[in-house]
């Protein structure tokens, strides 16, 4: 009939019929922007090899994601940029002198084993870049702890071994042997490629906070508990929050959506757990640095944190509220 089905092609769907502008690709794009200052610092500090190592990590992460999804006939998610983000963060976790083929193995562990085998984006229970760092650390401990002397802006960095500040501390080195807190903050010290400059990472982190990509709960709880723990243990708290992977971990890896709790309360518990475990490894463990292990351990108990920190319904808390009446 004329008046029925005048438009047989009308779409019928559940409400709402409009959506906000932010989609997954936009979020990942902003994380890449936030990683740019630390990347810039790494290039300034270590030269062109920082660019090459990052490129190797990003390209291999993206290719592994593409190939895995092609082989398993899943929807292609390369365009959501999450694999690219993993690639950059993985590169930041590696010494700039690491052989490229080891970086490719790291990308395989991150994307194929940690992310895709568990169902792809949003379904992995451990942070891909951190898992890769830990696997590489165990497998290639010598290469993973060979630190180039920063400040060499050469095409290829000489593999001159320098110690990281935490390494000096772990060896029971004298306080005089440690770099100044200003050097620690700026990042002119030894360490993984993207983790040394607290300043550059904080600029990126501030961008993420301003754009509301991450909430302040995890970084504040993580960095805050490292600070307090150091203070209580009679150590220099500023040294500890600037040293090693605390800034990179607290701002970019512990805040990974898939592997952190969903409520504010859960995020605070998670952040404190990361900070406390980090300091326990640093002060009492055999390893000089504990950020990766701390985040990985906390990743594993996220489901339990989520279950224990469910939010009550509105208005059911104590002291509910006076309206205008």
């Amino acid at each position: 009939m004329h008046e029925d089905y005048r438009f047989g092609n009308l779409i019928v769907s559940g409400s709402p019929h409009i959506v906000g502008k932010t989609d997954t690709t936009r979020i990942m794009g902003q994380v890449l922007i936030a990683l740019a200052p630390a990347f810039g610092f790494a290039v300034w500090s270590y030269g062109a090899r920082a660019i090459f190592l990052t490129a190797v990590c990003v390209i291999s992460c993206v290719v592994f994601e593409y190939l895995f999804e092609m082989v398993t006939k899943r929807a292609n998610t390369v365009s959501d940029l999450s694999a690219a983000v993993t690639g950059v963060i993985l590169a930041f976790n590696l010494p700039v002198t690491l052989p490229y083929w080891m970086a490719v193995i790291g990308a395989f562990v991150a994307i194929v084993i940690t992310k895709q085998l568990f169902g792809g984006i949003g379904r992995n229970f451990a942070n891909p870049a951190i898992t890769a760092r830990v696997v590489l650390f165990v497998a290639f401990s010598s290469e993973m702890t060979t630190w180039a002397v920063p400040g060499h802006i050469f095409f290829s960095v000489d593999a001159v071994t320098s110690a990281t500040p935490l390494g000096i501390l772990n060896e029971g080195g004298a306080a005089a042997g440690l770099p100044s807190n200003l050097d620690m903050f700026l990042g002119t010290v030894g360490g993984s490629m993207g983790e040394v400059s607290a300043l550059a990472l904080l600029i990126g982190g501030a961008f993420l906070l301003l754009r509301k990509i991450i909430s302040p709960a995890i970084p504040v709880a993580f960095i805050g508990s490292v600070f307090v723990f150091a203070l209580v243990a009679g150590q220099d708290p500023v040294f500890h929050i600037c040293a090693g992977g605390v800034m990179l971990g607290a701002l970019f890896m512990a805040t990974d959506y898939s592997t952190s709790p969903i409520t504010v309360k859960g995020k605070i518990i998670f952040g404190i757990g990361c900070g406390v475990i980090t300091m326990m490894i640093r002060l009492f463990g055999a390893y000089p640095e504990g950020v990766s292990f701390a985040i990985l351990i906390m990743n594993l108990i996220v489901p339990h944190i989520d279950k224990a920190t469910r939010r009550p319904l509105y208005g059911t808390k104590r002291g509910a509220a006076k309206g205008v009446m």
């Binding site: 089905y5 438009f7 409400s15 409009i18």
Partner: peptide, 17 residues
């Protein structure tokens, strides 16, 4: 899409007759 109501909670209609 043809909606009865607003874009957030409205119902999509399959026929304008």
């Amino acid at each position: 899409k043809l909606l009865m109501g607003g874009p957030m909670m409205g119902r999509s209609i399959y026929d304008d007759g």
